[in-house]
Design a binder for these strands. Sequence first.
DNA 1: CCGTATCCTACCAGATACTG
DNA 2: CAGTATCTGGTAGGATACGG
Lengths: 128, 128
Amino acid sequence: MFELPKENITPDVFREKCPARYLLNRVSGKWSILIIDILDDRNLRNGELMRLVEGISQKMLTQTLRELESIKLITRHDMQIIPPHVEYELTSLGKSLREKICAMDRWIEENMLEIISNNKNFSVKIAE
Amino acid sequence: MFELPKENITPDVFREKCPARYLLNRVSGKWSILIIDILDDRNLRNGELMRLVEGISQKMLTQTLRELESIKLITRHDMQIIPPHVEYELTSLGKSLREKICAMDRWIEENMLEIISNNKNFSVKIAE
DNA sequence: CCGTATCCTACCAGATACTG
DNA sequence: CAGTATCTGGTAGGATACGG
């Protein structure tokens, strides 16, 4: 729950109490970015997301999906059948944000080699 | 320290062991985004950053700055005088990434009201 | 297949005090 | 002014077991 101050709701991520800061912290969470990115223009199921986003646990997947749903970035489609079939989809708002997130992700991938080359924080482990 | 696997260094944020994932987690940290955004095209000092990025502690500021320096996104300029005068500046790599980050931040600010309106997760606290 | 419910731990991050 | 050092609590997040 986020309590909006009555005054000063000028959007500004640099202000501690601004909802924009709260939203930024949700969106930039460890898993949110990856989920939004991978959803793209398609619907994906729980199991597919687990496989595509390497390293995520069932718990964090569900938790992040619920969070993104609460801020209207994704929609949950429950087919109400047995065995269960649930699909997740970006809302139009989510798709709009995804463009920005993808730009960042692709930038990181494109510049990865430049960053890690000659960087003492990255060591090359030689396989035998 | 991040150990690079010998094979498969195709940049891919969705792969758990890819350096791109590691970099994404650094860049999308709680404070990294805000620091990169606020630095813009100028140099800022420790105290200025503390004031501009509301809510950050001295500890997290230093820690985040060191991290960003280690992945070559910012440069630290120590004037070597007493009293100390240190400035932080985005590298050209950092400035390039900043464009992507700013696009995301400004999107969040622009769409903030739409997200929080009629959202039960946000309550309006009425001041007296 | 798609989740919850618990338990448990590491580390993120705030608070405070101190220094060249 | 620009940091370190230390202590500590809260919570993110993993592991496991169970359920509709």
